[in-house]
């Protein structure tokens, strides 16, 4: 049952968005978020929305997939919208009853806030849907490389991240095995109230942790005997290369930023 969990939520494909260098995609995502928060008027929002829609279209990720990815944050969006609706003190009163006043400005802010969150999440979802976790860590390592100068252990961090990703399926399989072993000895995992359920997890977690530590120890020995000695002097089988499409994409991103700043000046 645990094997059904989808991890990283990567949907392999061969579209332009998939083929972009992970660094390009990371930078574009950051640019996109900046642009989204700079956007003020309806025209700016429309421009950003069009950009998002085109990207999703090119990536061939189905709209349904994006929408289902948005589902977990539905409550957050609703709460944000309602709070903005209630607490915005505007001039044009639309409705007033008991102690609640709803203004036109309030409705407008609520809608823009909700739209902003939806677009923010949809944009970042597009990144994780079209980039494998390994590519992401690789890209992140390359992007953060300059930080090595101020002694940030960039290589070590990305190595830890990719090993963590590598061991997720192994540990899930192990959890499954331990669960079955405990069930065979009469443990119950899905009955009782919340506290009982939490207590039932204990005989699962203790062996899982012990085995994870043992695995880590063995893995470290195996890595050492394969000459691992940190990032120094290390080469790579797959080197990330910036192609023409990457530079073009980045230029599009910068133009987008310039456009939204200009629109902001004009109050649109």
């Amino acid at each position: 049952m645990l094997k059904d969990i989808t991890l990283g939520q990567y949907f392999p494909g061969d579209t332009l968005v998939h083929r972009l260098d992970p660094r390009t995609k990371l930078v574009m995502t950051i640019l996109y978020i900046v642009v989204l928060f700079l956007a003020k008027g309806p025209i700016s929002y429309l421009a950003v929305f069009l950009f998002l829609a085109i990207s999703i279209g090119v990536s061939r990720i189905r709209l349904k997939t994006i929408l289902s990815g948005l589902k977990p944050i539905l409550i957050l969006i609703l709460i944000t919208a309602i709070l903005n609706l209630l607490y915005n003190r505007g001039e044009t009163v639309l409705l007033r009853f008991w102690r609640i006043t709803i203004t036109l400005e309030g409705v407008f802010t609520a809608l823009t806030m909700a739209l902003r969150i939806v677009m923010l999440i949809a944009g970042t979802l597009l990144l994780t849907y079209t980039t494998s976790p390994l590519q992401l860590t690789d890209g992140l390592e390359q992007l953060l490389n300059p930080l090595k100068k101020i002694h940030v252990p960039v290589h070590e961090l990305s190595m830890m991240m990719s090993i963590a990703l590598r061991f997720i399926p192994t540990l899930i399989e192990e959890t499954d095995k331990i669960m079955n072993a405990q069930k065979a000895r009469g443990a119950e995992f899905d009955t009782g109230n919340l506290i009982q359920k939490a207590k039932a997890m204990l005989p699962l977690l203790v062996p899982l942790f012990i085995s994870a530590f043992r695995r880590a120890d063995e893995l470290a020995t195996a890595m050492e005997s394969r000459c691992y000695h940190g990032g120094e002097g290390r080469t790579k089988l797959k080197v990330l290369t910036m192609e023409r499409r990457d530079w073009i994409t980045l230029i599009v991103g910068l133009l987008m930023l310039a456009l939204v700043i200009a629109l902001r000046r004009l109050g649109l």
């Binding site: 990719s162 590598r166 695995r215 195996a222 394969r226 000459c227 000695h229 790579k236």
Partner: peptide, 21 residues
């Protein structure tokens, strides 16, 4: 399981050669 480092077979085989530059 405890000596395979990477998520893809060929990346794992490359781990040693990568380490020795």
């Amino acid at each position: 399981d405890n000596q395979i480092v990477a998520n893809v077979v060929e990346d794992d085989v490359a781990f040693g050669p990568e380490n020795i530059g």
